[in-house]
Design a protein around this nucleic acid. Structure first.
Lengths: 245, 245
DNA sequence: TCAAAAGTGTTTCGGGTACACCCATGG
DNA sequence: CCATGGGTGTACCCGAAACACTTTTGA
């Protein structure tokens, strides 16, 4: 039987599938499959979540995550990227699966499972306008409105995963502009973990990881002295340990 | 608009859904949704995976994970528990979602997404016989056969997740009998991480966590001196840190 | 000149790791 | 009596955490 593994699997499969696929796949109930996006953003002040205000019935006026049904010719990942592109104009956004929400009655309108995904983007003027045009708004994560269905749970789960991930990998950089200051990163981490971090220890640890390139530019937008701008040095980051608590 | 949140949501929804659900849900393609189970087991020697040998066409003779389509009246979790119950007779099995596999062509027989879940069970004679009756067999994880579709990927992903999880939470106990010895746990961890662990450090760390209750029984099945049997003390385990590398 | 944020070093403490020998027992 | 696996203690090292003052500059 091990020989079979060497055969062209797809060909072999199709040979039988044509005759027999009804036996295997028949009478199996298909289900609506959606993706919902937990989109985090950072405006150099607070961590925010992008939510969508429904302006048509049903559920007019309620807040909701942005989602879509998965189409026949795309996988879940592609569905999310499609949404993000439409909504923000951005491509190459960091995103990762959170988990699937499959309860039978989670959506009273129809049996529908959702594969929730979270994404991280930088908030800037261009995408903020575009986003507003689509009826979406940024909410600070500590003043979120009630969301429809199980979307509140999704957001909480996503926050937990984000914290977990941020501790072990330099995830924050997806949320920062190309050039950023150390105090900016620190604010971001303080927002993610919702607690204050010691300046000296944070800076020491961060710089010791050796993946920040210092520039000779300064950002004076938040102090008179000005803070040096850094950029992420992708060459030097090789998934080393990155424990920041 | 905030007042709306206080209304009975489901009632409100249904009022519109009846008229309008076609507008929202119509023409949305439904998809087959399966669960696949990555079932790990431990027989006090090696970490094993339960795989299923297809004895009917299509794919006769090929090895595969155990799976099933999700039925209209169950969520993914319930589907997995149903499979595990049928297959092993066991209930209350530890299981957790791995992730969803949604590529358009992952299953050449039909568009079908799979929500992969991994589970941990102890292997004993009773469930081993039952399992064999269903055409399923335990394979040591370092001598796995080639599996169909994307199941190899699922197994690798599950192993990674298992390792990650085992490092930060005392997960191994799902895989051990009620009473077990310290050398047994160590073997389990050596299997999971595929490397040798220092006896003294392991024992020291494990006991310092204070959730093992020593009994006065000894297991002499693997040495003349015999090793003390312990049991898991659920009261004392409060999700403390549990870093074992 | 002063307010406000940026930037910098040292000490302490705990946990991780490395490492080698004695113990108990059945055959 | 000896082979086999069970069980124990110490020293070192490194990274995390705690902690306070100087620098710069625009207003």
């Amino acid at each position: 039987m091990y020989l079979l593994h060497l055969l062209n699997f797809k060909e072999y499969f199709m040979k039988f599938a044509k005759d027999q696929q009804n036996r295997w796949y028949e009478n199996k109930e298909k289900i609506l499959v959606a993706v919902d996006c937990i989109i985090f953003g950072f405006d150099n002040q607070t961590l925010k979540l992008l939510v969508f205000k429904r302006e048509i019935e049903p559920l007019k006026g309620l807040w909701s995550l942005i989602g879509s049904f998965v189409r026949p010719n795309e996988n879940a990942n592609q569905a999310v990227l499609r949404i993000l592109k439409d909504l923000t104009g951005l491509e190459n956004i960091f995103m990762e699966e959170l988990r699937a929400y499959t309860d039978v009655n989670r959506d009273p309108g129809a049996r529908c499972i959702s594969i929730a995904q979270y994404a991280l983007i930088r908030i800037d003027k261009e995408n903020e306008e575009l986003v507003n045009k689509h009826g979406a708004y940024w909410f600070s994560i500590d003043t979120l409105p009630k969301l429809v269905l199980d979307h509140d749970t999704m957001v909480q789960d996503a926050l937990e995963k984000l914290r977990d991930k941020a501790q072990r990998t330099p995830i924050g950089f997806e949320l920062l502009p190309k050039y950023f200051t150390i105090p900016q990163i620190q604010t971001l981490y303080e927002q993610i973990f919702q607690k204050e971090i010691d300046t000296r220890n944070f800076r020491k640890k961060l710089l010791s990881l050796n993946f920040l390139k210092k520039t000779d530019m300064k950002d004076k937008s938040s102090s008179k002295k000005g803070a040096y701008l850094y950029e992420f040095d992708y060459d030097k980051h090789h998934d080393q340990d990155f424990l920041i608590k």
